[in-house]
Amino acid sequence: MSFTPSELCDMILIYGEMGKNVEEAQREYKERFPNRQCPTNDIIMNTLTALREKGTLPSDHEDSDGETEPTQDSNGTILHNSLFPHYVQAVELTENDYNARIRFCIWLQEKLSKEPDFSTTVLFTGECCFTNRGILNYHNPYTGTISNSTRNSFQYDFSVNVWAGIIDKTLLGPFIFPSELNGESYLQFLQSMMPEFIEDIPLQVRKQMWFMHDGAPLHISQAVRTFFHMNYNEWIGRGGHVQWPVHSPDLNPLHYFLWTYIKNDLYHSGKGEIDSEDDLKQRILRAAAEIQQKPAWFKCMHESLPRRAEACLRTKGDRFHYFL
C-alpha cells in the first residue's frame, strides 16, 4: 500500500481522536474516507513510530515492518543520500567533512545538554530548487547554467527556487524567488524580505535567536557574511560564530523535514503531472500551508535533531541515515 503525506497525517490525527485505540482509528478512518484505501493497524502504528522516532514520514521504500529499504545502484551499492526515485545524488564525504560534522555535533550536544530546548531558538533556513520532475539539487540550489551532462541525466521544463525557515513550531515562508538565485539575489532577499519574516517571530524569541544557513555557495560571499555579522549576534554558517559542516543536509531540518514533505506531496502523492510553473508554485505553497497546521510534526522534527547528532558521532562523521 502507498499513502500520501496528507493521508498519513489523517491516520495519526484520527488515532489521537480515538483515544489511541488503533482498531477504532482504522474503523473511523474507513468511515470518514470511504473512497480511500483503508490502512491496516500495522500501517497506522508504523507511521506513528516513524514520526516519533525519526521525525519523518515512512517512505514508499519502507516495508510492513517499518524498516527502510536502502536505495541501491546497479552495483548494489547503498546510496545513503538518495532523494527520490528519479534523481539520486550522493556527495562523497572527505576527511575534512567528517571532522567538521563531528565538531558541529559535539557543539550541538553540549548546547542541548545545557539548554534542552535550544533547537527551538534556532531559525533553521535553506533553499531548494523544485522542477516539474523533481528536486534538481537537494543541497545547493540551482544558481547558474546547467551543464549538458546534467540536462541529459535530469530532464525538466521549468523550475523555481524556494527559501523557507523554521523556528520552534513556526514555518516562515516559503518565499519563491522571482528570478535566478545567486549571492546577489540572496543578499537582496536578506535585506528587503527577511525583516518582514523576522517580524512574525515574538520579540522574546528574537532576543535569544540563532540564525542558521548551510554552506551553499550563495551563502558565503563576503557581502553576505558582513550582513550577518552586522545584523545577528549569533549565527551558524560558513564564517559564522559556529561553522556549519558542508555536505550535511542530514543535519538540517529544512532538508530532512520540510523539503522532504513537500517533495513527497509534489511527486509521490498521485496528484497528477505538474503542467506549468504557476501550478508548481501553487502546489509548493499548498503543501507548506498543510504542514504549518501540524504542530506535532515540528515537535518530532526537534526531537529528531539530537538523535541525528548522536548517530553522526557514532559513525565518526559519516552518513548515518540507517542508524536512526
Rank of each mutant, 00 (worst) to 15 (best):
D42Q: 12
V224E: 04
Y232I: 09
T150N: 14
L108M: 12
I201V: 07
L57Y: 06
N46T: 08
L136F: 10
T94L: 03
R103L: 13
R151A: 08
T47A: 13
C300F: 15
E184Q: 09
D42K: 06
L254Q: 06
F154P: 00
H321N: 05
L266R: 03
M209I: 00
R101M: 05
K271P: 12
F189N: 03
R36Q: 10
H213F: 00
L280P: 05
L251C: 07
N81W: 09
R238G: 13
C9H: 11
S276T: 00
S74L: 04
R283D: 15
R101Q: 06
W210N: 07
I166M: 14
R32S: 06
Q243L: 04
P202F: 06
G237H: 05
V162G: 01
S2W: 02
E199Y: 15
E199F: 15
L13A: 10
D97M: 09
P70A: 03
S6Y: 11
C312V: 07
F124T: 02
G19E: 00
F104Q: 04
Y138V: 03
Q204T: 04
N46I: 04
M18C: 14
C312E: 09
C9Q: 12
F124G: 05
P5K: 00
N21C: 10
M212A: 10
L13R: 02
Y98T: 01
H86G: 14
E17P: 09
L181F: 05
N81A: 15
G183S: 11
N46Q: 15
Y138Q: 08
I135H: 03
C38P: 09
Y15G: 00
E199C: 11
P34C: 02
W163D: 14
G19K: 06
T120Q: 12
G76L: 01
L57S: 05
N81F: 14
I44T: 03
Y15W: 06
E127V: 01
K299H: 15
I78Y: 12
T56A: 08
M193Y: 12
L51G: 15
F3D: 01
N152F: 09
S269A: 15
H80S: 13
A289V: 06
L187G: 11
V88W: 11
L181T: 06
S147R: 04
M18T: 13
L285Y: 04
N252Q: 12
K263T: 05
Y15L: 07
A223S: 13
S304T: 03
N231A: 11
H219N: 10
L171D: 02
H302P: 07
S113R: 02
N182K: 05
A50Q: 10
F177I: 05
Y261G: 05
L79N: 03
L123R: 02
V122D: 08
H247I: 08
R32E: 10
G270P: 09
G76P: 09
I14M: 05
K316E: 12
G55K: 02
G215A: 10
E23K: 00
M193F: 08
I198L: 14
K263S: 10
F104T: 04
S147N: 04
E69I: 09
K281I: 14
A25S: 09
L112W: 01
R52K: 14
D265F: 15
T125C: 10
A311L: 01
I274A: 05
S159R: 04
D168I: 02
V224N: 01
